[in-house]
Design a protein around this nucleic acid. Structure first.
Lengths: 152, 152
DNA sequence: TTTAAACCGTACTGAAATTGTACGGTATTG
DNA sequence: CAATACCGTACAATTTCAGTACGGTTTAAA
């Protein structure tokens, strides 16, 4: 329940890596290697980020991706929205087209989920990428390949 | 993203119906008919509710289900927990058993999701079933079969 | 005592979403 | 001109979810 998709989790990690490079341009394969994730998957995530305006792509040689805004101006909500569209808790509001939920506008349940929705959105909006990328007292995950020994 | 499952949506509706019957015992097929949902699905939901201690089952003739607590003492969080287990946003905390997320305890992302998780839980906990079942100015959805004319 | 209503529990089937992969195309730099 | 790296779509596999079916047990009423 309420579990985020793996893509979303990956997306935040990738963006955090990019935030540590600031204005530097990083290639998709390089980010994939740094995070220990399959390269095509990372490429797909970055493409969606670019489409959402969170990162800027540079084609050609020495190309790659870079944040299009300072990390302090990018929230986790922005990342999720770029990956999976607007954050909605209920299928009621976007999926049911007039049939599944017949009580619709007078449905007391709807108000309930809306409240949850607002709380989630508010929390996601309040968390900036900078907070995640530069934690108060942690290492800044350099090029540490986590599964270097695991995948034998 | 963050979308609740249909089962959860159904569960809240069913529980709201039960709340309006208070101490009365209602059969699973009756609740299913009132909500316009398939009977086996409703039965499955009620079984889980009973297993979670939210409703009490009465077997035999004139049996059925009733709330085991006043509606004011049952939160939406309780319902979700009974249906789908503890409310966790990340797969990190429950799914990955030591391999998927290798940075684990020093992962700054983890703290991020934990914050979201707390916000969601707090909101869900603050909403009681009574609020949904007896809204301030709404009808109390009696035996109105919503799709009586639709399924021809 | 018998019968019927209603819950109990597991297993199975089908469908849907998600994840991961591949391929050919385009732009930029050296 | 050649190599690098993003671009976009399409496809296959896996997993999860919703829905269904069946046989069993309990209780109350006739």
């Amino acid at each position: 329940m309420f579990k985020i998709s793996r893509m979303t989790d990956y997306g935040v990690v990738i963006m955090a890596q990019l935030a540590q490079a600031s204005d530097a341009v990083v290639t998709a394969p390089d980010l994939a290697a740094g995070a220990g994730l399959p390269a095509p998957t990372v490429a797909k995530i970055l493409k969606r980020m670019a489409r959402g305006g969170l990162v800027t792509s540079h084609r050609g040689m020495n190309g790659g991706y870079a944040l299009s805004r300072p990390a302090t101006g990018i929230s986790v909500a922005d990342i999720i929205r770029a990956l999976e569209g607007p954050v909605e808790v209920t299928a009621c509001v976007d999926g049911a087209s007039g049939d599944a939920c017949s009580v619709e506008s007078l449905c007391p349940i709807r108000g309930c989920w809306d409240r949850v929705n607002s709380a989630v959105n508010r929390t996601l909006q309040s968390m900036s990428l900078a907070e995640i990328a530069h934690p108060p007292n942690f290492i800044d995950l350099p090029a540490t390949p986590k599964r270097a020994a695991a995948d034998s």
